[in-house]
Design a protein around this nucleic acid. Structure first.
Lengths: 215, 215
DNA sequence: TTCTGGGTTGAACGCTCAATCAACTCTTGG
DNA sequence: CCAAGAGTTGATTGAGCGTTCAACCCAGAA
């Protein structure tokens, strides 16, 4: 048999254009506020094509959320780990990267997943599960860095809680900044979180020096 | 002239019923997801009555947000200050009160103002301004407690930032708990925030003992 | 060449939405 | 008793929504 060509961008890929336009519009305007007709216009596609790939608007939302799940490591975590080696600094590199991503558009759009989490909370279980999965994956990545920090944090630290806390502060900070339309609230949160990590590291240092200390 | 009766609940007060129903429904289902017809049914009112008091759905939203502004002290801050005297404990009493308010409904509804903040972000400036005002008033109340804590916190503490941070952690925690449909995320946040405050107080103690310390 | 079926077209459908309005009721002051 | 106006009634409107569908296109297999 002839070698079948590997599918290398075999088409303008209608499905991809739809998901991309939907993701952008859901982020910009929210899920309910975005009409199918707008998605069609932005993607340059007709109604029938959209409904060929997605049986409903909600199924399209599932496609968007799956896209975020798959994009987390290549787009978010990867660049942070490439740029920063120190595990604790990676946490703040993540926050900084997020800030740089949101700043150009004036902090007016918020976190795409966080927004959906609040807007769609009572929707189909599949949607909720995907939102949850997104958060869990973010949390897992941060958790890995915190674990890698080893005894630079106190032994009693609840590392799972701390990882979730980082995420929560990030989401909360974005939300406040969005409401105020200025980055100040976000920056203030990051600054307080840094203070917290500094105090934790100081506590860990005292812990270590008292264990291996005066015999 | 005859003494005019002070207006003591002079009516079933249509306007109040409308605002109350709208507030409840916006909280339960979100602003966009709540139809005028639902508000009418729940308030036991006809369309014309609603539009007699509010020229549009958005004006009704303004009414709801004003209600939250006016309710903050009597309903939220007052009870906390009545129950708890210690200023730092008041912060956690506030978080606890919020938890108790959200718990019965399964953490599925989130913060009424936070939800609106994310859903309506690009709406009329009056709406955004009122959301901002709500957050600022919460922040001011927390700020007052933090100031009252005096030198129990390090002198270098940025108290304004810290007050905002408390709010952010609260909003972020509610949001995560809503996404997960369990109180765990919220509880974890509160626990981490408490740790932060403990570390701050320890640092302040060391600060004081080194100033007034060994001569 | 003919057949097959994934992909596309775009008008049309039923429905819900926020908003309107002419007619009505009730309260109050003179 | 009347006049006036605040408050109420509820059917109606037009716009926009998500969705459907019969017809069509066209690449590749038979």
């Amino acid at each position: 048999m002839a070698l079948p060509e590997l599918k290398l961008d075999p088409k303008p890929d209608t499905r991809e254009r739809i998901v991309e336009a939907a993701a952008r519009l859901f982020h910009e305007q929210g899920y309910n506020a975005t009409g199918i007709s707008t998605i069609l216009r932005e993607a340059g596609v007709n109604a029938g094509s959209l409904y060929h790939f997605f049986p409903s608007k909600e199924a399209l939302l599932v496609g968007v959320l799956e896209r975020y799940v798959h994009g987390l490591h290549p787009i978010v975590i990867g660049p942070v780990e490439a740029k920063t080696q120190d595990p604790i600094e990676r946490v703040f590199a993540l926050l900084d990267q997020y800030r740089n991503w949101l700043a150009p558009i004036g902090f007016s759009m918020g976190c795409p997943i966080g927004n959906l989490a609040l807007e769609i909370a009572d929707s189909a279980p599949q949607v909720r599960a995907l939102i949850d999965l997104n958060f869990q994956n973010w949390s897992k990545a941060v958790r890995a860095w915190i674990d890698a920090a080893g005894d630079r944090l106190p032994a009693t630290t609840n590392r799972h809680e701390l990882a979730d806390f980082v995420l929560t502060v990030m989401e909360g900070g974005i939300m406040q900044s969005r409401a105020a339309r200025t980055p100040e609230a976000f920056d203030a949160c990051v600054s307080q979180l840094r203070r917290y990590f500094e105090l934790l590291q100081e506590a860990a240092r005292r812990e270590r020096s008292s264990v291996s200390g005066p015999p």
